[in-house]
C-alpha cells in the first residue's frame, strides 16, 4: 500500500471504506426517514391520499428501491455493532478487519431471503406466478 499508515483504521484500507460507507448509508437513511414521516402524515389528510401514495411503494421500481433501503439500513446496523465493538471491546481494534468481513457475510446471507420475500410479489406480477 502506498501510504505508511496501513493498519490504522481511517487511513486507507477496508477500515476507512467501512467508515465512508457508514456515513453514506447513514445520510441516505436520514433523508428517506424525513420523506417517510411526511408520506405517513397523509393518514391525517384522508385514507385515499395515504393509499394513493402507499400504492406507489408497491410498484416494481419503488419495490426494488425498498430492497436497496433495507440493504443500506442493514449494513449501517451491522457496521454500527462493529463500531461499538471496536470502541468498547478490548480486542475490538485488533479484530476490526475480521469483524468487517463477518458483518459483510451476515449482510449477504440475510439479504438473500430478505430480497426474495420483498420482490416475490413484484416478480409474480411482472413474470407471472409459477
Amino acid at each position: 500500500m502506498a501510504n505508511g499508515n496501513a493498519g490504522t483504521l481511517y487511513r486507507g484500507g477496508p477500515g476507512m471504506w467501512s467508515w465512508v460507507a457508514h456515513r453514506i448509508t447513514g445520510a441516505a437513511v436520514f433523508f428517506f426517514l424525513v420523506v417517510h414521516v411526511v408520506d405517513t402524515a397523509l393518514v391525517r389528510v384522508s385514507p385515499d391520499a395515504y393509499n394513493t401514495v402507499i400504492d406507489t411503494y408497491k410498484t416494481p421500481l419503488v419495490n426494488l428501491m425498498e430492497v436497496g433501503l433495507v440493504a443500506v439500513v442493514l449494513f449501517h446496523a451491522l457496521n454500527g455493532i462493529r463500531v461499538i465493538l471496536v470502541d468498547f471491546w478490548e480486542q475490538g481494534p485488533r479484530y476490526q478487519r475480521q469483524m468487517l468481513w463477518t458483518i459483510l457475510v451476515i449482510w449477504f446471507v440475510v439479504m438473500i431471503p430478505g430480497a426474495y420475500f420483498m420482490l416475490k410479489h413484484t416478480a409474480e406480477t411482472l413474470f407471472g406466478s409459477a
Partner: peptide, 23 residues
C-alpha cells in the same frame, strides 16, 4: 428499525398489504 422493516417489508406479503386500514 430492523423489527419495523421486517414486519412492514418482509412478513406476510410485506408492503403489498399496507394501506390505511392496516395503519
Amino acid at each position: 428499525v430492523l423489527g419495523h422493516l421486517f414486519i412492514m417489508n418482509i412478513l406476510d406479503g410485506g408492503v403489498q398489504r399496507i394501506n390505511f386500514a392496516f395503519v
